[in-house]
Nucleic acid binder design. Structure first.
Length: 496
RNA sequence: GCCCCCAUCGUCUAGAGGCCUAGGACGUGGCCCUUUCAAGGCUAAAACCGGGGUUCGAAUCCCCGUGGGGGCACCA
C-alpha cells in the first residue's frame, strides 16, 4: 500500500469451518486478511463456521487457534478474544439467521419449501439421467404465502430457500478478475435455512459479514461460482456489498489439480505436509511458512523475495493479487526456511533449537547450545537438522565402524599412523582452541605426504562419528581435549 | 453434461501497447571459495499455448480455438 495513501481501516474476517486440520491454503487466506487489517489499522476477525454438526471435528478448533498463533496471526475479535459481535460461533447464532430468513420470506425474496430430501434426491437423479444440469424444480416456489405459512404453523417440516430471479443476468465484481456476468437462470433457489433450523453458508456468512461490518471479503476461489448468489442475497436485504476477492487455489506439486485427502496422507510419508502443525513439528519456522505462502498469489516487485511478517504488513498490496492457480513447491519452501534460519540472531536460533535437541534426547542448556549455533546455522534447512549435525557433541560415546576411520586412499595401518601422529600434537597443544590446531595439523599432513583433506577427514570421522559435520577444529574445541583424545585413541585401536 | 475462472522458463512470478535482446527467485549444470557438508559469489541452459484480428507497434487489448483449474448438496 503506498505510504501516502491513507486507506480506510478494513474490517476483515477469516472464517474457517472446523472440519479438519489447518492447511497451507487457509493459512494464506488468514495471512492476507491479517495483512490487510494490520496495514490499514483495521480489524481482523476470526469466525467459526460450525453450522454443519455432521462434519464438525472437535480437534479442529484447537488446531486452528494454535496454528494461527504459531504463525503470529493474532485475531482482534473472535473466540477467546471476544468483541462487539459475540458470539463468533455460527452455531450460536441460529436465532439471528432464522430472523433473517423470515425477513427474506416477508420481502418475497425467500420461500418455504416442503420437499423432502428423498424427493429432491429422486428429482436430481432423474435430471442427471436426462443429462440436465441438476437443479431445484421450483415446486414450492409459488405456493401462496398464506398457505405456506399455514403449513409451517401446522408444524410441517420445511426449509427456507432463496427466491432467485429467473430472468435476466447479474454482473458481479471480483477485485482480481473484474466484472463477471452470469445468467440468472443458472442460479438455483438454494436452501438458506435447513429443516433442523441451522443456516447454510450462503445465509450465515452473508448475514454475519453484514452485521460484523466486513468491508473486504478475501476467501478461496471455490466460492467464485456462488458469488452471484451471494450478491443477490445482499441485494435482497438491501445491503451494501463488501469488496470481493477470490484467492487462487493451491495445486498439488505436479500442478495437476487440488490435493486430495488421500494425497495429503501419502505426502507425509515423503516428509512433506500441507498441515501447519506438521510443518512446525518438522522444524519449519513460521517465518519460512509465511514468506513462502505470501508469495504464492502475490508479489511485491520483480526482485524482492525475503519478507518477515512485519515487512509484509508494510509492503502487502491487495491490488497485486494474482488470480491464477499456483502449484506448491516444497523446494522453494526449504529455501525460504533456510533464509529465515540464517537471518535469526544466534540467541534466538538457540532458543528455537533447544526443543529439537531435547526431543533428540540431549538434555542441554541454552548456554551449552549457544556456541554451537554459529557452526550449524548455515547448514540447516529445518530446525530438526540441528541435532543431526551437532548431536555428537553431547553424546557420551560414538562408535564409528572401522572402515569409516580409514583415510581416503589409505590403508588401515597408514590411517592409524596418521591419526596417532595428530594425537601426539593435540596432546601437547598448549591451548586446545580451534585457532591453534590448524597450523600444526597441516604440518603433520605434509610430513606424512598426505593432503590436508585426507588427514582432516580421518579426524572428522574419528571425533564426530559423522562424515558430514560442522567445521572440524571448532568441533574439536567444543568437544574438548579429553574427549577428542579419547576418541582418537579409540580410533587408532580400532584400526590396529 | 452445464456454469465460471485462469493461461510468461519445469515451478513461483515481474511485465498495466514501444522501457523486452522478456527481469527476478527456486530447482538444474559449470566455475570460484573450501578441512567435510552447507552457506556465499560468479555463470549457463530454460518461457510469452495456438490462430486470427486491432494498432505505426502486442507478452500486454479483442475474438476463436486449445489446455488447465474450480463449481454445480438440507458441506464449507
Amino acid at each position: 500500500m503506498p505510504k501516502d495513501a491513507k486507506p480506510q481501516p478494513a474490517r476483515v474476517r477469516f472464517a474457517p469451518s472446523p472440519t479438519g486440520l489447518t492447511h497451507l491454503g487457509s493459512a494464506r487466506t488468514a495471512l492476507y486478511n491479517y495483512l490487510l487489517a494490520r496495514q490499514t489499522g483495521g480489524v481482523f476477525i476470526l469466525r467459526i463456521e460450525d453450522t454443519d454438526q455432521k462434519r464438525y471435528d472437535p480437534n479442529a478448533e484447537a488446531d486452528l487457534t494454535s496454528s494461527l498463533r504459531w504463525l503470529g496471526l493474532q485475531w482482534d475479535e473472535g473466540p477467546e478474544a471476544g468483541g462487539p459481535h459475540t458470539p463468533y460461533y455460527q452455531s450460536q447464532r441460529m436465532e439471528t439467521y432464522r430472523r433473517h430468513a423470515e425477513e427474506l420470506v416477508e420481502r418475497g425474496k425467500g420461500f418455504y419449501c416442503f420437499c423432502t430430501p428423498a424427493e429432491l434426491d429422486a428429482e436430481r437423479k432423474a435430471q442427471q439421467a436426462r443429462k440436465e444440469q441438476p437443479h431445484y424444480s421450483g415446486k414450492c416456489r409459488d405456493i401462496p404465502p398464506a398457505e405456506a405459512r399455514q403449513r409451517v404453523a401446522n408444524g410441517e417440516t420445511h426449509v427456507v430457500r432463496f427466491k432467485s430471479p429467473k430472468e435476466g443476468s447479474i454482473t458481479v465484481v471480483d477485485q482480481l478478475r473484474g466484472e463477471i456476468t452470469v445468467e440468472n437462470r443458472t442460479i438455483d433457489d438454494r436452501v438458506l435455512l435447513k429443516s433442523d433450523g441451522h443456516a447454510l453458508y450462503h445465509l450465515a456468512a452473508m448475514v454475519d459479514d453484514h452485521l460484523m461490518g466486513i468491508t473486504h471479503v478475501l476467501r478461496g476461489e471455490e466460492w467464485l461460482p456462488s458469488l452471484p448468489l451471494h450478491v443477490h442475497i445482499y441485494e435482497a436485504f438491501g445491503w451494501e456489498q463488501p469488496k470481493w476477492f477470490h484467492l487462487s487455489v493451491f495445486l498439488k506439486p505436479s500442478g495437476k489439480g487440488k490435493m486430495s485427502k488421500r494425497e495429503t496422507e501419502a505426502m507425509k510419508l515423503t516428509g512433506q505436509s500441507i498441515f501447519i502443525q506438521d510443518l512446525k513439528d518438522m522444524g519449519y519456522l513460521p517465518e519460512g511458512v509465511l514468506n513462502w505462502i505470501a508469495l504464492m498469489g502475490w508479489s511485491y516487485d520483480d526482485k524482492t523475495e525475503f519478507f518477515t511478517l512485519e515487512d509484509l504488513v508494510d509492503k502487502f498490496d491487495i491490488s497485486r493479487l494474482n488470480p491464477s492457480p499456483a502449484a506448491i513447491d516444497f523446494k522453494k519452501f526449504d529455501h525460504f526456511n533456510g533464509l529465515h534460519i540464517r537471518a535469526l540472531p544466534a540467541e534466538a536460533l538457540a532458543a528455537r533449537l533447544l526443543p529439537y535437541f531435547e526431543a533428540a534426547g540431549h538434555s542441554i542448556s541454552l548456554e551449552q547450545l549457544l556456541p554451537i549455533v554459529p557452526l550449524i546455522q548455515t547448514r540447516m534447512t529445518t530446525l530438526d537438522e540441528g541435532p543431526e549435525l551437532a548431536g555428537f557433541l553431547f553424546q557420551e560415546a560414538i562408535d564409528p565402524p572401522a572402515e569409516m576411520l580409514v583415510g581416503q586412499g589409505l590403508d588401515a595401518a597408514a590411517s592409524a599412523a596418521a591419526v596417532g601422529k595428530a594425537l601426539e600434537i593435540l596432546e601437547v597443544l598448549p591451548e586446545f582452541t580451534a585457532a591453534n590446531m590448524e597450523e600444526p595439523l597441516r604440518a603433520v599432513a605434509e610430513e606424512l605426504g598426505l593432503k590436508a583433506g585426507q588427514l582432516f577427514g580421518m579426524l572428522r570421522n574419528a571425533v564426530t562419528g559423522q562424515q558430514v559435520s560442522p567445521p572440524l577444529f571448532e568441533s574439536m574445541e567444543l568437544v574438548g581435549r579429553e574427549t577428542v583424545l579419547a576418541r582418537l585413541r579409540a580410533a587408532v585401536e580400532k584400526l590396529a
